[in-house]
Design a protein around this nucleic acid. Sequence first.
DNA 1: CCGAATCCATCAGGATACTG
DNA 2: CAGTATCCTGATGGATTCGG
Lengths: 137, 137
Amino acid sequence: MTSSPTSRASRSPDGARGDLFDPQCPTRRLLDRIGTKWTSMAVKVLAEASPEEVRFAELQRRMAGISQKMLSATLQGLARDGLVGRRVEATVPPRVYYRLTPLGLTLEEPLAALREWAEAHMAEADRANRRSERQQA
Amino acid sequence: MTSSPTSRASRSPDGARGDLFDPQCPTRRLLDRIGTKWTSMAVKVLAEASPEEVRFAELQRRMAGISQKMLSATLQGLARDGLVGRRVEATVPPRVYYRLTPLGLTLEEPLAALREWAEAHMAEADRANRRSERQQA
DNA sequence: CCGAATCCATCAGGATACTG
DNA sequence: CAGTATCCTGATGGATTCGG
């Protein structure tokens, strides 16, 4: 989502205008994460399993359509942010278990609120959309 | 965010596998919208002004860093979804006023919850991030 | 089994210039 | 004033293949 933290921002002909759209805004950065295609789904699936751990392959099954690459990347991102924990069983073949951290669990709440809104109101947004399509045809 | 409704999805050598990652999921579509760079900021600014209307130029001032193109696109998207209303004063030069619809206002609530989470917890996520960076350096 | 690496198509979104 | 049009870039993320 173009997080690009170091966009070139403040660059106008007359020099330092001061950094535009504050590069620190926590909401912006959060949206950059959960807006990423699979992140919020991963949080949801892990939250549903919580406090159980879930293995990589099992996650992939529960998130229909995700590739290994994206599942891996998504989980790494969440792990880096301290939202999920990883546990590796050094057997062969190895088994890797994931679960939400306490921090990750707290995110589930506002995320669930968003899902509820979506389920309650997106149909209406879609109707508005179709109305727009028709009357500009 | 790759909404791409008609991605080529279900295409495996053996034909119809059935559409992958359900194309209907309302939460997915909502995230595709609010994940877009300026949408949630626009909702916030309009919500703060509500029930007052806000003009285009004023919105641009309150959303530091946004270009005319993106402001226009963002507002159009929100208008299409029925989340904001447009009122044109046919003077010259023309004046266009925007405001959240009742539907748009209901979205502010879960969005505010998300912002609160971000302000409360993103610092912790960032700390986790820096830890990760250091220990793999 | 889990994931890293490579390759590649698509697209969000910024800069700039032009209109009614 | 409030857009629209055009051009261009980097990032997202899918497919596929290789490795431990």
